[in-house]
Amino acid sequence: MKGGAYPAFALTAFQSRLAYRNQVWASAFGELVVSYAFIAIWSAAFAGRVVADGATLPQMITYVMVAGLLYWNTDRLINDVGDAVRTGDITIFLLKPLNYPASLLATHFGHYVFDQLVVTLPVFVIIGLTVGLLPPASMFHALVFIPYWALSWLMLFTLAALCGLLAFWLLTVFALEWFLKGIMALASGAIVPLWFMPGWLAGILGYLPFAWVSYYPSAIYLGKLDPSSAFLHFGIGAAWLAALLSFLLWLWSQARQRLTVQGG
């Protein structure tokens, strides 16, 4: 297994996006419209109130933008796996000294970096200049936010890759895209923070892996967790990630066996 090949996957993915400039402009404009729409919704929800459930309107606007920074479109990843299974291109990876999940991680990290630099960052700056965004609650929360951000990306990648690998058994990924989107819309806290949810529901969702994609990193940024809680929840999220990565590798081994048996 040649580890030096994986950075090449990331670089190739990044460079391939440069060829589609019109798509980049359209994505940035769409992201900007969606951001202003969420800001308008939360502004109307506060309706002149200064504080709601311990959060202010500036905090909610910042929360929406940080959550948007963390949550990335997983359709490309799921469709890549689905197309590889449908066309049979997945067999190529059985002939190479490469780990397929690792190559997926490298490739979509390249896509993610491109989207962050070319689409998300400009939108973030425009919203900051026109509406205003809060800085991290403290230096501690700013520093802790960085590993939470990495954990968030790896968690969402693993969840999307697991959905994609199910194409080996379902032979389609269309329903899987909507399945993951539906779960993430409710359970990740990307749209509505857990502190606005009923206590029993927030208690359940707060210990599922989806919450580490958007809610906990955004809550850290805003200072909603003290240092002890921040370290505790990071440890729980890391344990979830380790378990899901192990399951992903096991599922890939089962998919390889299924592919080998069907292909003779």
Rank of each mutant, 00 (worst) to 15 (best):
I126M: 14
T62I: 06
S16Y: 08
A185R: 02
P122C: 11
M65W: 02
G182N: 04
S228M: 09
F46K: 13
L105T: 02
K2A: 14
L57N: 07
F109R: 03
V123W: 05
A167V: 03
W212P: 06
I41T: 13
L248K: 00
V131Q: 15
L134T: 00
G189E: 04
L225V: 07
S35D: 11
L94T: 10
P193I: 11
L259R: 06
M197V: 09
A202G: 12
Q23D: 15
A211L: 03
Y215M: 02
R21S: 11
F9L: 09
G4A: 13
M1H: 11
D226L: 01
D53Y: 13
N22R: 15
D89Y: 04
S43H: 12
W149C: 13
L11T: 12
Y71E: 13
N22Q: 08
L166P: 02
L251F: 06
L201K: 00
M65P: 03
G182V: 03
F145R: 11
G189M: 01
Y215S: 03
A106K: 11
I92D: 09
L104S: 07
A202S: 15
I204Y: 10
A106R: 12
F14Y: 15
W252N: 07
I39H: 08
I220Q: 11
T12E: 14
F9Q: 08
A230H: 11
L156G: 07
W72A: 11
A161W: 00
R76V: 10
Y63G: 00
W169Q: 04
G199L: 06
V85F: 03
R256F: 03
W178S: 01
A185F: 15
G48M: 08
I236N: 10
A142G: 10
A167E: 01
P97K: 04
D75Y: 02
G235E: 01
N99C: 06
F247M: 13
L159Y: 05
M1A: 10
L57Y: 12
N99M: 07
R76S: 15
V213R: 10
R49S: 14
F114W: 14
A255E: 04
F157I: 05
L151S: 11
G206E: 02
T74H: 15
H233C: 08
F114Y: 15
Y36W: 02
G199F: 09
L259G: 01
M197G: 06
V66F: 04
R49G: 12
S103V: 07
W169T: 01
G223L: 10
T87V: 02
V33K: 06
Y207M: 03
Q116Y: 14
Q15C: 13
F14E: 08
P135H: 08
L117H: 07
A167R: 01
V261P: 07
